[in-house]
Amino acid sequence: LARAETAFKTRKRVNLMHLVYQSEENMGIDGGEEEESEEDVEEGGLFRVKKRKVQKSRSLALVDTCKVEVLAGDLVEWGEEDNLESLRHRFITAKPNPENGE
């Protein structure tokens, strides 16, 4: 089991390093801009009219900011008691007062 775990770890590490340093082209961050097909239309021979790319996706990843937007839908889970409880161990008060209803 221990061997499997280390194998898993190393594999995952390679993946992350690879993701950051090797696969520059196919990262999700640039995804939004490449969606539209871009075609050159012949017009009168000399000039080419480039079809305008329509930017469809909206994302802060396309803006120069370090903030990452968490979708409102992803926060709904925090309305559930189980999820709220699952975080309790991260607080210094983890043991002393287990019952503390809202």
């Binding site: 775990e5 898993f8 770890k9 995952k12 590490r13 992350l16 390093m17 993701l19 950051v20 340093y21 520059e24 990262m27 999700g28 961050i29 990843a61 900011t65 370090c66 990452v68």
Partner: peptide, 27 residues
């Protein structure tokens, strides 16, 4: 976890400063 912004930052740091980070997940 790595944000997309940080990922590009790591790449740019590599191009400018020549520093490669070791990125190791802690399961």
């Amino acid at each position: 976890n790595l944000t997309p912004f940080t990922i590009q930052y790591l790449r740019d740091i590599k191009s400018f400063l020549g520093v490669t980070f070791k990125i190791k997940p802690d399961p």
